[in-house]
Amino acid sequence: MSAYNKSELISQNGADFNSNFEMFPDSIKEFADGQYVSKMNLDTDDSFEYTILRIKYSEDDYNAELERLSNMGDAKSEVGSGNLIYDDKSYNYPAYIAKDGEDNVYEYVLNNENEREIIYVILSNPIVSEMKEWYEYLKIDRNSYEK
């Protein structure tokens, strides 16, 4: 978790993901429980990148973060319109989705209500077989990521 730095993510990966990581929290210093991973493989024909941040929040912080996310989008918007859409069917958890395959980029937040966890995910050219450890955070229909 200590490796997470939103400013660095934006400067190093923003262009690749075509994202300003707006859905991701600005800081996680006050949150000790969670996990952060960022991986890229740009050296082959099968290039891919992903960043996943999972944070377990206190009840108050969890509610505040859900409020922040819900105010970012309009549930009736089209995916990719600059707003978030809400989807409670495509993933293992309810999701707020910013990008769903545009230029092969997927950007979304998952809400694990039972654990008060929020999982922030961004994928570029996802290769599902390279992400077995993270299947829980991918679409239920993993074939939908096929190019």
Rank of each mutant, 00 (worst) to 15 (best):
P126S: 08
F17W: 07
N63Y: 07
I97Y: 02
E65Y: 02
Y93H: 05
D87H: 13
S19W: 15
K29Q: 12
D43I: 05
L42Q: 07
Y145C: 02
I52G: 13
E78F: 14
K147L: 13
V105T: 09
I52C: 13
D46L: 02
N13Q: 12
S19Y: 15
N20H: 14
D100H: 08
N71M: 03
A95R: 10
S2Y: 11
Y86H: 12
S129Q: 04
K147W: 12
N92Y: 14
T51E: 09
N104F: 14
N125V: 02
D26V: 13
K132W: 12
D88I: 08
N111R: 06
Q35L: 07
E67Q: 03
L84Q: 03
E59D: 01
D33L: 06
N71V: 00
K29C: 08
E65F: 03
E136N: 06
S11N: 04
I118G: 00
G101R: 08
N18T: 09
K29A: 09
N5P: 09
Y108S: 05
A75C: 13
D88R: 13
M23C: 05
S27M: 08
K89D: 15
D45S: 11
D61Y: 00
E59G: 00
R68V: 03
K56Y: 04
R142E: 10
D74T: 15
N5E: 09
V79G: 12
M40H: 07
F31Y: 13
M23E: 06
F24L: 04
A98H: 04
V105A: 08
Y36S: 09
E115Q: 01
V121Y: 06
Q12D: 15
Y135I: 05
Y93L: 02
I140F: 01
N114E: 12
K139C: 01
E22H: 03
N83D: 14
E115C: 00
E113P: 04
G34N: 06
N63G: 06
I10T: 14
D100I: 07
Y62N: 10
I119M: 02
P25K: 02
A95N: 12
D88N: 13
Y91P: 02
E133P: 11
S7F: 14
